[in-house]
Design a protein around this nucleic acid. Structure first.
Lengths: 232, 232
DNA sequence: ATTATGTCTCTTGTATACAATACCACACCT
DNA sequence: AGGTGTGGTATTGTATACAAGAGACATAAT
């Protein structure tokens, strides 16, 4: 268990603070897959009682980030290749839906926003200054504009959840500059297609975008798998 | 607050029993939208302490069935027409995905299962004996075969969640015999198309199936809305 | 040697006690 | 009359206490 700390936010209940803390610790790998989440240990570490810890774990459980076995406790969910494949299959379908809806429903302000985010992402990549998590955030911001433009709350919620499930892997993926050119080009095409409200074009490029991400992530997880096997 | 009781299951933690109890009370309307969920009251009613109640509420919160306002408490989420529209939009896309995947991946045993479920549903409708919730269950069982055949765990999970969000409305919808003929026909077509692994046909009929359901549910919720307005 | 059993400890599950906050009612002031 | 303040009460938030189950280890029986 790597170190992680709580950001204390005066007006958020402790359980939510704990929830956010644990969540991001899991997503960034500070809590490793398979690691047990022991209430007392976490409570001491974060300086609170077991109650908020437990309530936070309940939420993580429902989100699928931790697995509970009754009377045994919680552990960080292990993500298998199959899990990722499943997530990617659903994302492919829903990102498409979101982008098509965005074509119909995006407002002029949102179009401006999209242009700005796109430019920011490109700039960050080309200047090569941003670190990977900043890059990830810029990427998220770009796609969020499209999600929001779909005007479908439920869709946005499901998609951001699916995206978070893959956060770890996406981060690794953004560390590999070999993909940058492709990413920039695809974002540009997506932006253009959405602005023109051209659903066919959007579908094409979005399919490719997700497919590339899929390939990259799967390559990555397979490599990790191999390493793990070699270690044994 | 209508009456509802806990099914006591020896080896499930109380929090999960409470969670399931509250959840189905919400979905079937025994707990009405906007109703406050007060911990002590619920705890007394269900004969447990506040702790399991609170943990159940945390999960319902994440699922979107209750809305929390810090230091004020939880209330049953109000479902607007917009919410339903959003859910239906996502379902449309995902049911399609599931059925297409099922075409590729369905096994011979599952095909047999599908035929059986289809026949059972048709029989129940034609004999007119089953009550509405039985009918709903048979319908669910039919669609579940397809979900399972998609072999995508995440997809199955999201879809059954979305379906549950609409449970109330679907039940009303099944009370109206005017839809029965259409339902039976569509199920038959879906079965046939999946068996033939004919994705194009499947997409067509599934689109129609969901569209019809969408229209029915939206008509319904609008009628309810009017009634509510008349009452005031 | 292996399996069964019992005890000890660690951890979770549940209940309860205590703290803090929000809401409501009533009175008071303007 | 209307707004504002103040206290009391109801409800949530958090901590802790107690109960019970699961795992580990040791010991005894076969």
């Amino acid at each position: 268990m790597q170190d992680f700390e709580m950001k204390i936010n005066e007006y958020l209940p402790l359980r939510d603070v704990v929830f956010n803390t644990l969540r991001s610790a899991i997503l960034t790998g500070k809590l490793e897959p398979g690691e047990r989440l022991m209430e007392i240990a976490l409570a001491n570490k974060l300086g609170v009682s077991r109650t908020p810890i437990r309530e936070a774990i309940r939420k993580l459980e429902l989100e699928g980030l931790v697995i509970m076995t009754p009377r045994k406790g919680a552990e960080v969910a292990r993500i298998t290749e199959k899990d990722l494949q499943d997530v990617l299959e659903v994302r492919e379908s829903l990102e498409n839906l979101a982008t098509e809806l965005a074509c119909d429903r995006i407002s002029d302000e949102e179009i401006e926003e999209l242009k700005i985010r796109n430019a920011a992402f490109i700039e960050a990549i080309e200047k090569g200054k941003a670190d990977f998590s900043e890059l990830a955030e810029l990427d998220v911001a770009f796609h969020d504009v499209i999600f929001n433009a779909s005007k479908n709350t439920r869709l946005m919620q499901i998609l951001s959840n699916l995206r978070e499930q893959m956060y770890r892997y996406r981060l690794e993926y953004l560390k590999n500059p070999e993909y940058y050119g492709m990413l920039v080009k695809e974002h540009a095409l997506i932006t253009e297609a959405v602005i023109n409200r051209d659903k066919d074009a959007v579908k094409q490029v979005m399919d490719r975008h997700i497919m590339h991400q899929r390939d990259a992530v799967l390559t990555l997880i397979r490599r990790q798998e191999e390493e793990r096997n070699r270690k044994q």
